[in-house]
Design a protein around this nucleic acid. Sequence first.
DNA 1: CTGTTAGCGCATTCAT
DNA 2: ATGAATGCGCTAACAG
Lengths: 336, 336
Amino acid sequence: MATMVEVARLAQVSISTVSHVLNGTRNVEPETRSRVVDAIEKTGYRQDALARAMRRSRTESIGLVVSDAGEPAFADMVHGVEDAAVERGLTLVLANSAENPDRERRAVHTLLDRRVDGLILACAAESDPALMVSLREEKTPIVLLDRVFSDLPFDQVGADNRDSMRRLISHLLAAGHRNFVLVAGDVRVPTLRERLEGFTDAIASAGLAPSDQLVLTGTDESAIRAALRGLRGSATAVVAASTPLAALALEELRASGRGIPADIAFATFDGFNHSDLFEPRLTTVRQPAFDMGVAAVRLLVERLASPDSRPRIVRLQQQLELRDSTEGFRPREARE
Amino acid sequence: MATMVEVARLAQVSISTVSHVLNGTRNVEPETRSRVVDAIEKTGYRQDALARAMRRSRTESIGLVVSDAGEPAFADMVHGVEDAAVERGLTLVLANSAENPDRERRAVHTLLDRRVDGLILACAAESDPALMVSLREEKTPIVLLDRVFSDLPFDQVGADNRDSMRRLISHLLAAGHRNFVLVAGDVRVPTLRERLEGFTDAIASAGLAPSDQLVLTGTDESAIRAALRGLRGSATAVVAASTPLAALALEELRASGRGIPADIAFATFDGFNHSDLFEPRLTTVRQPAFDMGVAAVRLLVERLASPDSRPRIVRLQQQLELRDSTEGFRPREARE
DNA sequence: CTGTTAGCGCATTCAT
DNA sequence: ATGAATGCGCTAACAG
């Protein structure tokens, strides 16, 4: 690879002139410039981003650590981040923590050591608190994505989970449902906790007895499965707080012979791709994952521009998509 | 950030000793080493990957350019590449060409300028041939992913598209189908072209008249839609060559009131996530996208190790998942 | 308007 | 077993 030295020699100028025509960082006589441009052409010179980054202490790159690259929602966030980054001339360095705190810590440090200009972090479920604390000391700006920790002084992007759950439950209440099953999952994950809180809120403000509701929390998949399979009694609606939980719940409901929505109503957060092409068509609270990625980059870039402004938390609104899976319920009183 | 100089001073050694204990690259007296280790601890020193890369001319990173980060299949490939990269201590730099040749070219050059040690490229549909040619001159190893150009001297990873299509059609032939609609899409994309070829092969070896088959090619979505909507006559099975094409076809079949599989059989390549939870359950040729990503990294690393060995093309097998959407067809003769 | 020069932080060769 | 010194390729003072 040709370096600036060779270009300079060929163009009969100093390397600093080459650098300046390259970066447009000071005036240079048209005649000289064109000699340089020609030399660049001839040598096939291309700037070495590494050396440049080193000298300027700016890599023009950002890091992104996601907790589960396998989930479509996270894939969409990655997509959004990449898109927004390219638009600003930033390169994306990607790492996946696979919901593993140790791997997360290593990923963060790898990216930091590569001197990314900023870091976007979608925390793992069991994120090491010590990591968070140490990250506050970093001078590399950090934006938390999806999983919001309101007590931490970071810029953050999340969805309005609590509110969306309230809206969903309101809708189901209006349709006559009084007894719910919430498949809540691992409530250490802020996103899932917020959804649970929204549920609790909604139940409380409707004046319903919490004891009439079944909330399945935790990471023990088989326990959740068992609970769903053995489901009996009064529940008329199942709500899944995430796509993996929905997949699991749908399997068990099917296994136990329950039809949706004939026997029981069903709704989920995040949802499945192209799901309106298939039956049952699920009522879904759709996360604006792509836009969340875009927003994270925006926060990061703004932070880079003004390092001392106050941290901001952005909540993007989720879309409540009503479909067949919550249609056609008849409250008990109205049945024949 | 502390540098080696500060560590050296604190430990009362030269920076070269610090470097050597860091990299284990020569013997150092235990006593000295421990002073250095302590100093590293105290200063919170972390190696600057940029400076290191510059000095060694090795970034320990690889680049990945995908053509459509939005498609789940590509998301899975990204996931596989990331996983395999991390396992080898490599960092992943990601770019998305969004099926845009110009953006693809820029992405490739951006990554190359960042001196990634190797590059994995899932070409866009209209990839600039000039780009390919210029890439052959690069000394950075390049692996082509998913879209295989057998005449190009690159390491490549693809799926056995042609063969899988033959297997799928064989199955449908055995079930009595004689008249197909293939939604083939943009056959400039090697993957789609191979699937089309497999189809042609299968029809030929079954001794069927190509003129009895309807093949829909091209990028004009509304033309394809129209053809599907206006579908009449003898076709008993529709095959979609990719997920986006399947989505489109399913929409149109539904719009024209055709039931699957009651009125017409349906099968698709690549498929939908969690699709076995929903109706109709689609017969699917599943691409091992994650594994393809892993394989690409493997090829790249091996190429790095032996730069002069002959380029290899790896074809991973696809899984034929038979489901309801191709069940229950009765050949005309057998009908009452 | 242009050239000279000093590092950025590190790995490494050559001394000792 | 350790240190001194060089340079990777570039940008940005500083000097003319």
